[in-house]
């Protein structure tokens, strides 16, 4: 079984936020009005934000200022704090290491959103809405089943959603390999953000395979993980700038 992992090279990232946009269209993330965004209700499964998150004097004084931006998908932790606290198993880690979210199961208690130290989880405060041209071009892909609703499927009111490493793409790739009667290869699938990345800063692959790009990059001295001392063991790995 592959263990899916993403490596983001901060040296190559130009903070264009193309990943955020690609994610939004791939995963049907609801759009909110500016007044709602002010209340912190904007949804960005793949957020790009400055680090430190609250710029203070420590980031320097003009002209010696330094701005660092971090693109942030879900960390897909190997020890995810979010799934431990879910009372109903609406969020869970699958055998390929992806932390999934089942909209049909979520009761909206928001313990996972509070429990996630990375803030990758979003809540549907209102029923998702799109304006006319957008509403006509939603991604039809969805992961569906008995009591299961995942991926880009339009979310119901009052549930939590998050980055799934484009789980629908993975399912499609698996289905295709099965239909063609061959083994699935780890290079058959990448999430939308990796595909779109302007600076080619994102790498995606199987962490179990020691020869894969992500495994090789993860060994670099530049590699680090967000909140490493939290014991969450993220599978989204960063390469330090400089």
């Amino acid at each position: 079984m592959p263990k899916w992992s993403m490596v983001i090279d901060l040296d190559k990232c130009v903070a264009c936020q193309g990943c955020s946009i690609a994610c939004r269209f791939e995963n049907n993330t609801p759009v909110v009005a500016p007044d709602q965004a002010k209340l912190g209700r904007a949804m960005r499964w793949n957020d790009v934000f400055p680090l430190p998150v609250n710029p203070t004097e420590e980031t320097g004084e003009y002209p010696h200022v330094k701005a660092q931006y971090v693109p942030r998908p879900c960390m897909h932790c190997e020890n995810p704090p979010c799934i431990k606290v879910c009372p109903v198993g609406a969020t869970f880690i699958d055998e390929e290491g992806i932390v999934e979210q089942n909209y049909a199961r979520c009761i909206g208690c928001r313990f996972c959103t509070v429990g996630c130290p990375y803030g990758v989880r979003y809540f549907n405060w209102y029923e998702p809405q799109w304006e006319t041209p957008l509403a006509e071009h939603l991604n039809p892909d969805r992961v569906e089943g008995q009591g299961v609703l995942e991926g880009p499927a339009v979310r119901p009111l009052g549930v939590v959603e998050k980055c799934t490493f484009c789980i629908h793409r993975l399912k499609k790739a698996h289905a295709q390999a099965e239909a063609e009667g061959r083994d699935f290869r780890a290079d058959e699938y990448v999430p939308a953000c990796v595909q779109t990345c302007t600076g080619k800063a994102r790498f995606f692959g199987d962490l179990e395979d020691p020869d894969s790009t992500v495994s090789q990059l993860a060994l670099k001295p530049r590699s680090f993980r967000l909140l490493e001392d939290g014991g969450t063991h993220p599978k989204t790995i960063y390469l330090r700038e400089g």
Binding site: K84, V85, C86, P87, V88, G89, R105, C106, I107, G108, C109, R110, F111, F123, N124, P156, L157, G158, V159, V160
Partner: peptide, 29 residues
């Protein structure tokens, strides 16, 4: 108060049907 805070009050029975004892919310219930 905790019921009022829930996003999906209609899914309250899920805590019994699918309840996970590992979650502190279940200990609380």
């Amino acid at each position: 108060q905790i019921l009022i805070d829930m996003g999906r009050i209609d899914r309250l029975p899920f805590t019994v049907i699918f309840g996970r004892l590992q979650s502190p919310i279940m200990w609380d219930i």
